[in-house]
Nucleic acid binder design. Structure first.
Lengths: 131, 131
DNA sequence: TTAACTGTATTAGTATGTTTAGTACAGTTT
DNA sequence: AAACTGTACTAAACATACTAATACAGTTAA
């Protein structure tokens, strides 16, 4: 399903959270699609089921998936409600990131290109309402 | 000089690296300005000098400061040369971050505002050359 | 030269976090 | 009932972060 760097100083469960987020965001894993079970995925990746569970728990806490005992774990639909804190955090982080990018040498042109590139693949959301 | 959250799960030295980066990027610490010595800063922050040193070592590795034995640590001038890898990394990370921001509910309008906001405080760099 | 500063290195001990292993229990599906 | 699902718990191994103490080398000013 994907590759992990077991030798990295970055915890496996964090790598897992990141990879799965990307799959969900990029719509590779679609809404309500079932994720592999903790045991199955653990076997596929040759790591401990507890590590998978930790990643799933984190993803559930962040609202990316939901788990049902006895059934499985599924991709949840992202709702912009109740996310004010998360949104503010994302904004702050982006500001930092952009300032740092400029500092190390990216041009304003670079940034605009990146923005256009990412927006290109997204449905136009600029009329969306958020309470 | 700044505040640290000793109770955070985030390592102290990482918080230090982050704070100092921000000070350098925002020109609070200016080029060739001397940073507090590892011992002085350690005393001010009530933490171990080794932890400061670890942060300084990391900042030096990332090119933000340079240290001279017997003299001290100083803010270095950021050069866009030799940073191709770092720049590519920053671009990739920004793309990820933006995609995630859109996913959790930020609008394209939000992103454009953020970009304008950060660019506003920066010298216009769009004519800069990078080999 | 000496004293007091600077960065740097090393060793050891403690604490915390990550990962594995094993076991167990509850709910679902066939 | 059997085989799957998520979830919880304990114990041990291991890695990392941090502190503490000490030491050494280079710089600077008295």
């Amino acid at each position: 399903m994907f590759e992990l760097d077991l030798r990295s100083r970055r915890p496996i469960y964090e790598q897992l959270v990141d990879k799965l987020k990307q799959l969900i965001i990029n719509d590779v894993l679609k809404q309500d699609e079932q994720l592999p079970s903790v045991r199955t995925l653990a076997q596929q990746l040759s790591i401990n089921p507890n590590t998978i569970q930790k990643a799933y728990r984190e993803l559930e806490a962040q609202g990316y998936i939901y788990s049902v005992k006895g059934k499985g774990s599924f991709v949840s639909q992202m709702v912009a409600e109740n996310n004010e804190h998360q949104i503010k955090q994302a904004k702050d982080q982006l500001k930092k990131q952009i300032a740092e990018a400029l500092f190390i040498g990216l041009t304003v042109q670079d940034l605009k290109e990146i923005l256009e590139e990412v927006i290109g693949g997204e449905p136009n959301d600029s009329n969306a309402e958020r309470k």
